[in-house]
Amino acid sequence: MRLPPLNALRAFEAAARHSSVHKAAQELHVTPAAISHQVKGLEEYLGVMLFKRMPRRITLTPAGEACLPKLTAAFDQLAEAVAAAQQLAHAGRVIVTVPPALATKWLIPKLAHFRDRHADVDLRISARQSLVDRSRGEHDQAGNLLDGGDVAIRFGDGDYPGYVTHKLFTSYSLPMCSPRLLEGPNALRTPDDLRNHTLLHYESDIAMMDVGRPNWVSWLKAAGVRGVNTRRGPTFNHVTLAMQAAADGLGVVLGIPIMASEEIAEGSLVAPFALSLPTGASYYLVHAASAEREPSIKAFCDWILSEAHSEPWAQPLPSADDGG
């Protein structure tokens, strides 16, 4: 038996299930006229009326009632078949969405370790500035939370209801500079010595992202230092730029150590004082509960949590003798 056109069957099934041509049109992203045309063509093909048409509603005829359950079940089976094929096609694929700065300065340098252990995983890194919470409540929509990924690393407050959340790092600010500034007649030995050095600043292009983040005024106050002009020195629009300037010897930055772990390890940046202040947000690994059933996703999550827990700059330094 030759089957009628699939589009006509789909239009009838949707209209019958909703008892509405307009709702069927919305579901299938076509016009109501297109749904009516498809259904009429199906009725002509079958030689039987499927709907009783009334001024403001439609109801099924006996023929339509007989057809609908099996047709709905058939479309459900088609959807399951497509989903199964897609699942096999994407087996082993893990899409990780992550803020650009963390991807560049921390995640990517470590990916060789993951590849050596899990060469069968098709890892895809997608850097997204949208993974930075700009205000509370911004991440209420599920579509924004993972931003297209299987796993997301978000910079925010960790309040992500309905998702599995693991804290990776405590984000904090700490003075950082080139080791060259620790030498010479104006050597940086105590916080009070900062009055003899250029202070580097950074301000985000998006003002909301700076809310709650410490600056030189708050850090010097916490260190008990007075009389330092905190307005002097250049300003950058991103912390990584300011930290690069510090590594080049241009001054001292109130930087974020997790973003400079490689520079600190190789010695191009040092942290002369242990006094740190929280930035008001931290980095979190986020995913749906169902993701834990996927071996590739679980392998990535286990690996990154292990890397984060062994990161020496994941927590602030003890600061009992901050005053130097």
Results as ranks from 00 to 15, higher is better:
L3V: 08
L3H: 14
F12Y: 10
A16T: 13
R17Y: 14
H22M: 10
T31P: 03
I35F: 15
S36N: 07
H37E: 08
Q38E: 09
M49Y: 15
L50M: 11
F51I: 10
M54N: 14
Q77L: 12
A89W: 14
H90E: 08
I95E: 04
I95S: 05
V96H: 01
P99K: 00
A103C: 03
T104Y: 01
I108L: 10
I108P: 03
P109M: 05
A112C: 00
H118R: 06
H118Y: 15
L123V: 02
R124P: 02
R124A: 10
A127Q: 09
S130C: 00
V132N: 02
R134D: 07
S135Y: 15
E138M: 10
G156E: 11
Y160C: 00
L168F: 05
Y172G: 10
S173L: 08
L174R: 09
M176P: 03
E183Y: 14
G184H: 07
P185T: 02
P185K: 14
A187K: 06
P191H: 13
P191L: 10
R195H: 14
N196M: 02
L199Q: 05
I206R: 07
R213G: 01
K221M: 09
A223S: 13
G233L: 03
P234T: 13
P234R: 15
F236H: 09
T240R: 00
T240V: 15
Q244D: 13
D248L: 06
G251C: 06
V253Q: 03
I258M: 05
A260I: 12
G267Q: 00
V270D: 02
P278R: 15
G280H: 09
G280C: 08
A281Y: 11
Y284Q: 00
A289D: 08
S296R: 06
I297D: 10
W303P: 12
W303E: 10
L305I: 10
W313E: 07
Q315C: 01
S319D: 15
